[in-house]
């Protein structure tokens, strides 16, 4: 187990190191590394300012952003699937992504603010608002029945999607719609040091919380009676985990838009290797999520360069066949 984590952690470092050398601009390996060692204070070589920026301000924050978003989505997905006892659960189950979309579209289209910060803020506010509505709609009984939370989430997601379409059709111009669509499809293009500065600590804190509750999550996997019998305060823990993962997802979706399939697929894939024990599953799924999204985003920005694809399109293109394969192999084993 420790060996697997070490290997994956090494793989993550290598992935960051390799991905940062790949991009539409034709920079040599040496230049890229010189820029990074310059900034780390190890060297002080002369690199043209714009090349320095390409590596340090565009590529590196983006690669790290992919790692943070991938890790966060994978962890949230794993927790959601266990807490709701629903294999179809993903981080967006509780209306967070559709709320974020509505918030972002409202900012873009209704001109509630200008610039990237306004869009991120709008998305975050929308995500939290949608989650609050889901919680309110689910009501107190939801503590006992997770299905109610899921159903409330689905209903709110539908409502937000309808309102998003309404705002786009009512107010937007086709050209504005195009840039909205790009963001809605999921993109890491806006990941910068500032975004990392608050997403990474949130990820670390939420990960610490869910790792702390790993044994409780194991108990959930056997059902709530079993969990209660094992001394887990089922209602309280469930809410705590749902709220923390929803917060994390809201932060991620504000940075990258809704990137699908990472949070659904990777927990299933990781479980095949780790079994159901969350003390093993959580560290591995987080590392795997980070590595996966780094490479998919690298493909999104280089495959058709100088054009760029929304990364969410690629995660779906890769994710759906992988998911089908996974289902078939599971059937074969059963």
């Amino acid at each position: 187990m420790v060996a697997v984590v070490v290997v994956l952690a090494g793989g993550l470092l290598l992935s960051v190191a390799a991905a940062v050398t790949v991009g539409p601009a034709d920079l040599s390996l040496g230049t890229v590394w010189l820029v990074i060692t310059n900034h780390l204070g190890l060297t002080s070589a002369d690199v043209p300012l714009l090349r320095d920026h390409i590596v340090w301000e565009l590529r590196l924050p983006r690669v790290l952003g992919a790692a943070v978003v991938g890790a966060g989505l994978a962890a949230s997905g794993a927790v959601m699937q266990t807490v709701t006892r629903n294999p179809l659960a993903d981080p967006y189950l509780l209306g967070v992504s559709s709320g974020a979309s509505l918030g972002a579209v409202a900012v873009l289209v209704l001109g509630l603010g200008a610039g990237a910060a306004a869009l991120t803020g709008g998305a975050f506010a929308g995500a939290l608002a949608a989650f609050a509505v889901v919680v309110a709609a689910a009501g107190r009984q939801a503590v006992l029945r997770p299905t109610r939370v899921v159903l409330a989430g689905v209903a709110v997601a539908q409502l937000c999607a309808a309102l998003t379409s309404f705002v786009i059709i009512w107010a937007a111009d086709p050209h504005a719609t195009q840039s909205i669509t790009f963001w809605l499809s999921g993109s890491l293009a806006r990941a910068d040091w500032a975004a990392l500065g608050w997403a990474a600590p949130v990820l670390a804190a939420v990960f610490a919380v869910i790792l702390w509750f790993a044994r409780a999550l194991n108990a959930f996997a056997f059902g709530e009676e079993a969990a209660a019998a094992l001394g887990v305060a089922v209602g309280r823990v469930r809410w705590l985990l749902l709220v923390t993962t929803a917060l994390l997802t809201a932060v991620l979706v504000a940075i990258s838009g809704a990137i699908g399939f990472v949070g659904l697929l990777l927990p299933h894939a990781a479980r095949r290797f780790t079994g159901p024990d969350h003390r093993r599953l959580l560290p591995i799924v987080v590392l795997a999520g980070a590595i996966f999204l780094i490479w998919v985003d690298t493909a999104a920005r280089t495959l058709f360069e100088p054009r760029e694809l929304p990364v969410g399109v690629l995660t779906a293109l890769l994710g759906v066949p992988a998911f089908v394969l996974l289902l078939r192999r599971r059937d074969g084993n059963a």
Partner: peptide
């Protein structure tokens, strides 16, 4: 029109930038 990336813009380093003025952007 085509979606491109800022990295490519930096690499190609334009002499002049045309900014399209539209109510939505």
């Amino acid at each position: 029109w085509a979606d491109t990336s800022w990295e490519t813009v930096v690499e190609r380093n334009p002499g002049v930038i045309v900014l399209i003025d539209a109510s939505w952007d």
